[in-house]
C-alpha cells in the first residue's frame, strides 16, 4: 500500500513534467500550426545544457536558470531561420524539417556528450528524503513537483492575465483575427516557439537528476508530449495537466508491478481513452 502511494507521488511528479512538455508543444503546435517533431530533442538539449552549465559553474541553480534560456534561444533561432520559411508549405514539409532537426540535435548530443548515459546528482540541499509518514520520499522529487506546478501556474497566468497571453490564445483559435488586430504575426510565432522551447528545456533540466541523461531521452519524451496534446487538446491548459497526470500516474503504478510495460502503458492508456472518447478528454475538435 505504501509502495503504491509512493508510486502515485512519483507519478504526479513525472506527470507534471509531462504536462509541461504538452503545454510547450501545445503553444508551438497551436499557435504556429506546425507539427513539432523537434520538441523531444529540445527537452534532451535542456537536460544536457544543465549538466554542462553545472559542470562549468558548479552551481545547480544557475544551471536551472541558464539551461532553459539557452534552449529558448535555440528555439528562437530555429523559428527565425527555418520554420518561418515553411508556413506556406504543407504539414509534410514542416514535419520533415522538424524531424530532420530532431535527428541533427540527437546526433549532436552523441557527438558532444557521448553515446553513454550520464547520471546527474541533485544539488546537495535537495539530496536525501523526507519522512511523509506513509513513506520516505526523495526531496528532489518534491521540489520537481513544486517547480513544475509553479511553471504551470505561471504559464496559466501569462496566458490568461496578460495582453501577450491573450494574443497568443487568440493566435491558437483564430489567426486571421490576430492579424486584423494589427499584430505582427511573425513576432507572435517567434515568441510562441521560444516559449514552448523554454518549457521543454526546463522540463529536461528538471528531469536530469531523476532519470539521468541519455541520447534517446528526447524521442521517448516526444511521443509522450504528443499523447498529452492528443488527449488534452491543443491550447488546453487544464487538458494538458489532466492528461499529464493521468499518464504519469498510470506509468508509475504499472512500473511498481510490471516494470517492462511502464512505457508502453502510456500509449496504451491513450489508445484506451481514444477508443471511448475519440475527441480526447475534453472533446476538443
Amino acid at each position: 500500500m505504501n509502495l503504491l502511494l509512493g508510486q502515485i507521488l512519483n507519478g504526479i511528479a513525472t506527470g507534471m513534467l509531462y504536462a509541461l512538455m504538452g503545454l510547450g508543444l501545445s503553444l508551438i503546435t497551436g499557435v504556429l500550426n506546425i507539427p513539432n517533431f523537434a520538441h523531444g530533442a529540445l527537452f534532451a538539449i535542456g537536460a544536457y545544457f544543465l549538466v554542462s552549465v553545472v559542470g562549468l559553474l558548479g552551481n545547480f541553480w544557475l544551471g536551472l536558470l541558464v539551461a532553459p534560456i539557452g534552449v529558448a534561444l535555440l528555439g528562437l533561432l530555429i523559428e527565425y531561420a527555418g520554420v518561418r520559411r515553411l508556413y506556406a508549405a504543407g504539414h509534410d514539409y514542416q514535419l520533415l524539417f522538424t524531424f530532420g532537426l530532431a535527428l541533427i540535435l540527437n546526433e549532436l548530443i552523441i557527438v558532444i556528450w557521448g553515446p553513454v548515459g550520464i547520471s546527474h546528482l541533485p544539488p546537495a540541499i535537495l539530496r536525501g528524503g523526507v519522512d511523509l509518514g506513509f513513506t520516505f520520499y526523495p526531496k528532489y522529487r518534491l521540489f520537481v513537483m513544486a517547480m513544475a506546478g509553479l511553471l504551470v501556474v505561471a504559464t496559466w497566468l501569462f496566458l490568461e492575465k496578460t495582453r501577450y497571453g491573450a494574443i497568443m490564445r487568440a493566435g491558437i483559435e483564430n489567426k486571421e483575427m490576430v492579424s486584423l488586430l494589427g499584430i505582427d504575426i511573425h513576432w507572435l510565432f517567434t515568441v510562441a516557439f521560444a516559449l514552448g522551447a523554454y518549457l521543454a528545456g526546463i522540463a529536461g533540466a528538471l528531469t536530469a537528476p531523476i532519470r539521468g541523461l541519455s541520447p534517446g531521452m528526447g524521442v521517448d519524451m516526444l511521443g509522450i508530449a504528443f499523447v498529452v496534446v492528443a488527449l488534452g487538446g491543443l491550447g488546453n491548459l487544464l487538458g494538458a495537466i489532466a492528461a499529464g497526470l493521468l499518464i504519469g500516474v498510470a506509468q508509475a503504478v504499472v512500473a511498481a508491478y510490471w516494470t517492462e510495460a511502464s512505457t508502453a502503458v502510456i500509449f496504451a492508456v491513450m489508445a484506451a481513452v481514444l477508443l471511448v472518447r475519440p475527441q480526447g478528454l475534453f472533446g476538443i475538435r
Binding site: 503546435t29 500550426n33 506546425i34 507539427p35 517533431f37 504539414h91 514535419l95 521517448d220 516526444l222 511521443g223 504528443f226 499523447v227 496534446v229 492528443a230 491543443l234 512505457t263 508502453a264 500509449f267 496504451a268 491513450m270 489508445a271 481514444l274 477508443l275 475519440p278 475527441q279 475538435r285
Partner: peptide, 23 residues
C-alpha cells in the same frame, strides 16, 4: 483510432501509436 481526428492531431496519433508498438 487515427481517422477520427484530423490535421496535426492525426499526425501525432500515428506517431504515438507507433511508439506503442515500438515499446
Amino acid at each position: 483510432l487515427c481517422v477520427q481526428r484530423s490535421g496535426l492531431y492525426f499526425i501525432m496519433l500515428t506517431f504515438a501509436l507507433n511508439q506503442l508498438f515500438y515499446f
